[in-house]
């Protein structure tokens, strides 16, 4: 064989299309047992919250649906409170409000944080300095007390609560996104896109942002849980939306009868616990899925 032929042959053998299989996202997720557990819990809780009004055996606000302060028994599986309202129906309803606040505040703050962090990280220099100083101002204020203040000042409507929680949570997102942008901006594939002639908009939206979304989504799921806890805390202090029942409102109402009717606090508390825990577990699982490292090597 001539040298040229040998060279070509050498090139050809290396060119056999040996391509590693694409591992589906759900399989990476399922590798993490606790994340799968969290997903299953959420798969029960979210339909319960969304379909609450249809699934609940009683109207959550109906007084004397059963005997007052009765322990768990059929048909009141979670018992009844001091006004004879069905705790299970109220929990389902409260879960809906709590999750609404959680997801609402998390998406609001994530959106704001991505914009601020992305602009700061991509443009750098003066813009970065300015935006990061503003972010720091928000970060040094004790979150819970600013929340109390905002809600007390603007009124305890559910929108105001979502807004207050979001205003308190975005700096975290902004910092995460900024650092992602800073490191991604210097990656070779971004330079490669620049060399290919990509515009600034393409660089941001098709090269950098999709690669920054992993930590953002993970942080987002954790934020949902945090927002639910914050809302429960505000409600417990009597700053919840008075026209809606959330899990926090239920805890606040049951304060007085906690010693005699444990079920009135135990079940709403358990729901918060389960929801926040499973959101955190799912966040961890998503981290595995969205981190390209878990696929590579």
């Amino acid at each position: 064989m001539s040298t040229a032929g040998a060279m070509q042959a050498a090139e050809a053998t290396a060119q056999m299309p040996v391509i590693a299989p694409h591992v589906p996202a759900w399989r990476i997720f399922a590798r993490n047992g606790t994340a799968a557990f969290g997903a299953i819990v959420l798969a029960v809780l979210i339909p319960l919250a969304v379909l609450g009004p249809f699934l609940a055996p009683f109207d959550p606000s109906r007084v004397n649906a059963g005997p007052p302060m009765a322990g768990p028994h059929w048909p009141h599986v979670f018992g009844t409170d001091d006004l004879g309202r069905d705790v299970f129906s109220r929990v389902a309803d409260g879960l809906r409000v709590s999750l609404l606040v959680g997801f609402g505040a998390a998406s609001f703050s994530t959106g704001l944080g991505v914009v601020v962090g992305g602009v700061a990280g991509f443009f750098g220099r003066f813009i970065d300095d300015l935006l990061m100083r503003i972010t720091e101002i928000f970060q040094v204020i004790p979150r819970f007390f600013l929340g109390v203040l905002l809600v007390a000042f603007f009124g305890a409507s559910i929108f105001n609560i979502i807004f207050a929680i979001a205003i308190l949570s975005w700096p975290e997102v902004a910092r995460v996104v900024r650092s992602e942008f800073l490191s991604l901006r210097a990656r070779q594939f971004v330079d490669a896109a620049r060399v290919a002639g990509a515009s600034r908009r393409t660089l941001i939206f098709s090269e950098i942002l999709p690669n920054a979304m992993g930590p953002v989504v993970v942080n987002g799921t954790l934020l949902v849980g945090q927002a639910m806890l914050l809302e429960a805390g505000l409600s417990y202090l009597g700053l919840g939306d008075p026209s809606l029942v959330s899990l926090g409102v239920m805890l606040q109402e049951a304060q007085q009868i906690m010693r005699t009717a444990w079920w009135t606090t135990a079940f709403p508390g358990l729901m918060i616990f389960l929801a926040v825990l499973s959101l955190n577990l799912v966040g961890d699982g998503l981290n595995d899925v969205l981190n390209p490292r878990s696929r590579e090597r």
């Binding site: 070779q188 002639g197 090269e207 999709p210």
Partner: peptide, 29 residues
């Protein structure tokens, strides 16, 4: 100008966008 001068980067593990298929990477230029 960039049409006339192109670059091959150092690290093949860093110079392809991990979220894009090879088709969309090639489609860009």
């Amino acid at each position: 100008h960039r049409r006339r001068v192109q670059m091959v980067f150092q690290d093949p593990f860093d110079s392809l966008n991990p979220r894009k298929t090879i088709l969309s990477t090639l489609a860009q230029p």
